[in-house]
Amino acid sequence: MTGRPFPRRRRQTLHFLAQIRAVAPVFLDTEVDMGGVLSHRDRARQVGTRYSLVTYVLHAGAQVLAKHPQANAAIRGALRPRVAHYEAVNAKLALDRTLDGQRAVLSAVLPDLADTDLDGIQEQVSHYRDGDAERMPEFAGVRRLQGLPVPLGRLAFRRFVGPLHRRNEVFGTFAVTSLGHRAVDSFHSVGGTTVTLGVGRVLPRPVVRDEAVVVAPVMRLSLSFDHRVIDGAEAADVLTEIKDALESYGGAG
């Protein structure tokens, strides 16, 4: 067996994983009745508007994080830890893209989502999903990083994302990653933010409504949180409120 050089188009992932080693993740999950979301999306399609499921998660997550400033935060340092609480809610969205024929994860930061409606969020999601990652100016920094030797790239990445005041611009204040387009029910991810949401697929499952068991479209939603920043009770509140927000779109069913 012979080794090959690490793929250049995945170097940013290597640097990112090295940077977040200090994170102390704890994992939670729940099930969300997506009947209301799907009904809302179907009604939107009838008037020519298309929303992705991740857009609803981004919208609900941003609204909830705005109500939980302790979770909309970041930490840095071991001997002298410092915590920054951010006024804006910026979401980091993980994207599966292809660069020079190499499959890679790219991340886009969507700013000020607490003050952005579904249409505005969908516009940003579509921009990043449909754009040419080889040419988009938003990914110019990543393309430059990929061209650096690994040791130099790691140093550059660390220096760029190190300052707390810059974290919300580079990592966002919460992260969302979805694998629901494939046969993935649930998973847990660490996105470098205090709160990371993992979105699985929607499947018909038994649920209880009005004391009767019915079949409904259910999505498993996970939340990982950095225990250095918040505790489990706060994280449980955040996940529960996101679940409630998603189930409130037009009422389930």
Rank of each mutant, 00 (worst) to 15 (best):
206 P>E: 00
170 V>T: 01
206 P>D: 03
222 S>C: 03
217 P>T: 00
163 P>F: 01
174 F>E: 00
172 G>W: 03
214 V>T: 13
214 V>E: 11
210 D>G: 15
218 V>A: 01
227 H>S: 13
184 V>R: 03
161 V>T: 14
175 A>W: 10
170 V>H: 04
168 N>A: 14
222 S>P: 01
197 L>D: 02
214 V>D: 02
202 V>G: 06
198 G>C: 05
197 L>I: 06
175 A>Y: 06
217 P>Y: 00
224 S>R: 14
190 V>M: 14
158 R>I: 00
174 F>W: 05
191 G>D: 04
184 V>W: 03
159 R>I: 08
200 G>F: 08
181 H>W: 10
200 G>M: 09
215 V>Q: 11
168 N>Y: 13
220 R>L: 10
210 D>A: 15
200 G>L: 09
203 L>F: 06
159 R>E: 13
210 D>Q: 15
166 R>L: 09
159 R>L: 14
208 V>F: 02
158 R>Q: 03
193 T>F: 01
205 R>T: 04
207 V>D: 00
162 G>Y: 06
161 V>E: 07
220 R>C: 11
180 G>R: 04
183 A>W: 15
176 V>C: 04
211 E>P: 07
197 L>W: 00
175 A>S: 14
215 V>T: 11
178 S>V: 11
198 G>M: 07
161 V>H: 03
188 H>F: 10
167 R>F: 07
211 E>D: 15
188 H>E: 07
191 G>F: 09
172 G>L: 05
209 R>T: 05
185 D>S: 05
187 F>Q: 12
184 V>Y: 09
193 T>D: 04
194 T>E: 04
185 D>G: 08
182 R>G: 14
163 P>C: 00
217 P>E: 04
172 G>N: 09
222 S>D: 09
200 G>C: 10
202 V>T: 05
193 T>R: 00
202 V>P: 02
223 L>C: 14
210 D>N: 15
162 G>L: 07
219 M>Q: 12
203 L>A: 13
194 T>W: 02
170 V>E: 02
165 H>P: 01
214 V>F: 01
203 L>P: 00
194 T>H: 05
156 A>I: 03
192 G>N: 08
166 R>D: 00
168 N>H: 15
158 R>L: 01
222 S>R: 04
228 R>H: 10
163 P>T: 02
177 T>A: 13
229 V>Q: 04
156 A>S: 12
196 T>Y: 12
222 S>F: 08
163 P>E: 02
200 G>P: 04
194 T>K: 03
197 L>R: 08
157 F>N: 02
196 T>C: 10
204 P>S: 13
195 V>T: 02
222 S>T: 07
177 T>V: 09
160 F>N: 00
168 N>K: 12
157 F>L: 01
173 T>A: 10
165 H>R: 13
159 R>W: 11
168 N>G: 10
159 R>K: 15
172 G>C: 03
176 V>E: 10
175 A>C: 12
180 G>Q: 03
213 V>M: 02
227 H>I: 06
160 F>E: 01
160 F>Q: 08
181 H>E: 14
